[in-house]
Design a protein around this nucleic acid. Structure first.
Lengths: 221, 221
DNA sequence: ACCTGAACACCGTTCAAGT
DNA sequence: ACCTGAACACCGTTCAAGT
């Protein structure tokens, strides 16, 4: 009990210095908050208490909870894009497989990112993808280099990411708000990473069939 | 204004005959309620008012909102299974394609079923699938007849349904609770049915590659 | 401009009580 | 046994007011 503790036995009158909170601070705080608590249990009063500010302070920077969640999703997406490792492999098949294995692994390991990205954000358009996700743009360029017409390359990417998102959501169904039980029992769909990879292999085999004949035996640049 | 109208100008004292509500009645009522209002906006008090009973009456038959939603999902699933048309086509490729086109079309056209089935229910295990979904059991039997080892047949089914669910959720992202705007502007992912079919074709082509050699030229019995 | 406590209309759920 | 109105502890959001 340090001498600088609260003067009164009740709550401290002023909790934070006045200009000490702002949009980035709130964003950082909510991510910290969500390391202990699932997003579905995030509430504005709870977050305010955690940040040691009044609820209304949050509403000064974010017009609604929706807006806050959107900002979180945006930040999670950027961080996800950046954490995607560089493309590896010579054959387009290997590059594609590694890319989506990473896609899957990064989100499967991070519940919050998975909720924010795979659940909240649907899929992106072609334009959005190539402008905001450099690694995906590289991947698509690689597919074109391998001989895929660009619309086919995009369809391939779309199919694989739709499958990947579907798989992630299968493993991570809508949160039960009243889930006091820690874990111990997965709902039903007993899936393992090998199950995920089967689908990827399957789709890649199909793409090999779709690759125009004249591109089948091309060198790697 | 019929003479049998409420005696008082305020709310009628007793709304319903006493034994007039029960679990099936509530279930029927909530489906009716959800024809006008998205599930995400379903609340227990609202439903009670719609059914013209006290909230507590609902809690007598369903221990929680969760339990009510589970019962809805169960009923929606049964109805979905029954609405799947009989298998058609000679080649396994055609049968598979038609099956998943129907899967997609039935849920794409029915927001409530889509929410209940594609969003709430993850994927089913092999056992659950063949026991509760006769059409899927037929489909899997057909794949085995075509020469697919049974674990490969199941993986094929799982891949296709994961893709289908992913696609449906892409089109139908988490509901905005504050969506007063009727429609007019889809979020971003401009998808058309042809986009869906591309992925199905892609996966089927991959499966053709995976079909054991000795089964390639078999008759249709 | 930034931030506060108190309030509003809601929610899911439960209580004590009626029939 | 079935059902009620009233209450509880919460929620998202807004208000009038403080600095």
């Amino acid at each position: 009990m340090p001498p600088s503790a609260n003067t009164g036995s009740k709550r401290p009158r002023s909790r934070r210095a006045r200009g000490s909170i702002n949009a980035p601070g709130i964003l950082a705080g909510v991510f910290e908050f969500c390391r202990d608590t699932p997003v579905d249990q995030l509430s504005m009063p709870r977050l305010a208490a955690y940040l040691d500010v009044g609820v209304t302070s949050i509403y000064w920077y974010f017009k609604s909870k929706r807006e806050l969640l959107d900002a979180m999703a945006e930040e999670a997406l950027v961080s996800f894009y950046e954490s995607m490792p560089a493309l590896r492999g010579d054959a387009w098949e290997d590059v594609l497989r590694e890319f989506f294995k990473n896609f899957y692994a990064l989100l499967a390991v991070d519940d919050l990112k998975c909720d924010l990205i795979a659940r909240r954000i649907g899929s992106l358009t072609y334009q959005e993808t190539i402008t905001s996700w450099p690694r995906a743009a590289e991947l698509l360029a690689g597919l074109r280099d391998a001989g895929f017409p660009s619309s086919l390359a995009w369809h391939a990417f779309f199919t694989l990411s739709t499958y990947t998102r579907g798989f992630l959501l299968t493993e991570r169904p809508a949160e039960d708000p009243a889930a006091a039980v820690p874990a111990a029992a997965q709902p039903s769909g007993v899936t393992v990473p090998e199950d995920f990879e089967f689908g990827i292999t399957n789709i890649i085999l199909g793409l090999r069939t779709l690759l125009p004949e004249d591109a089948r035996d091309r060198d790697v640049a």
